[in-house]
Amino acid sequence: MKKKSIHLLILLTVILINLSCTKDKEPQKQPKIEIDEKNLTACPEKATCQYLFTENTDLNIEPIIFKTGNYRVFWSEVQTPDMSAKLYIKAPMQGKDFSLGKTDILEERVKLIRSCPACSMIPLKELDGYVKGINLTPDKPGDQAKWLLEIKLIVGADEESYERDTIYIKQHFYPNFVYN
């Protein structure tokens, strides 16, 4: 009788441990991404700016060439008489919002290219930051969509360098393709 009691106690203990170790079956909800539409980034004086996106695209990084792929690619371009800067963001196609962090930036899903023929610039690489995006017109087709992105990108010569720059953009992005 004593042996049966011990076996039953052990069996009950094993069952309770198994039940307590099972993972929650419900998928965890991602926090809702919010971006304030106020205080959008202004285009610098004497510059031309554009903020565009295209879908089902990817990028060759060196040189930058668009190709068919699985991303929604956003890009901003600022051109002044002396220099140009282009920022490319490879965001997921699915969903009405997205968020990219340091890991995505280090995996070259965010790429900054600066060109200044008359400058002696230190080559900078992307080190940290974030990108958040929200589709402001989720009920419209992609060729009529309007996205709001907030981008903070920290660039520097390398991780140990004190020479760093922070690029901040908050702007509406519009489609650069036609479905209809």
Rank of each mutant, 00 (worst) to 15 (best):
K132A: 04
E126P: 02
G142N: 10
L127W: 06
L106Q: 09
T137M: 08
L106V: 09
M1K: 14
S20Y: 02
S115A: 08
L136Y: 00
A91T: 11
P92N: 08
G95D: 10
S115I: 02
L136C: 03
D139W: 05
E160N: 14
L153S: 04
E108W: 02
N39H: 15
P44T: 02
G101D: 13
T103E: 15
V14S: 11
K86Q: 12
L87E: 01
T166Q: 09
E107F: 10
P138M: 09
T22K: 12
M1H: 14
F98L: 05
Y71D: 13
P44D: 03
I6D: 05
S20K: 09
Q144H: 13
G142Q: 06
K140T: 12
V131Q: 05
D82I: 07
E62T: 14
E34F: 12
H172L: 15
A157R: 13
K3D: 08
L112F: 13
L59W: 07
D128I: 03
T137K: 11
L100I: 08
G101I: 08
Y168T: 09
E126Y: 07
L106S: 05
L52Q: 03
V178T: 11
I61W: 10
P92Q: 09
P123L: 02
G101P: 01
P123W: 07
V178W: 05
T54R: 07
Y130M: 08
I65A: 15
D82W: 05
F173M: 11
K125F: 01
L16F: 12
L112D: 06
A157S: 15
G95K: 07
C119M: 02
K32S: 10
T41F: 01
M83V: 09
K152G: 01
K46T: 09
K86I: 14
T13A: 15
S20T: 10
Q144G: 03
M93E: 14
K96G: 12
K102C: 08
E34L: 14
P117Y: 06
P117E: 06
I122T: 15
S76T: 10
L40C: 06
Q171K: 09
T13V: 11
R114K: 11
S120E: 15
M121I: 01
V131M: 07
K132S: 07
N135T: 05
K96E: 14
R72M: 06
K152I: 03
K152S: 06
N135K: 05
K2L: 13
K38Q: 11
I10K: 08
S99E: 15
T137E: 04
I151V: 15
T57K: 13
P63C: 06
S115Q: 13
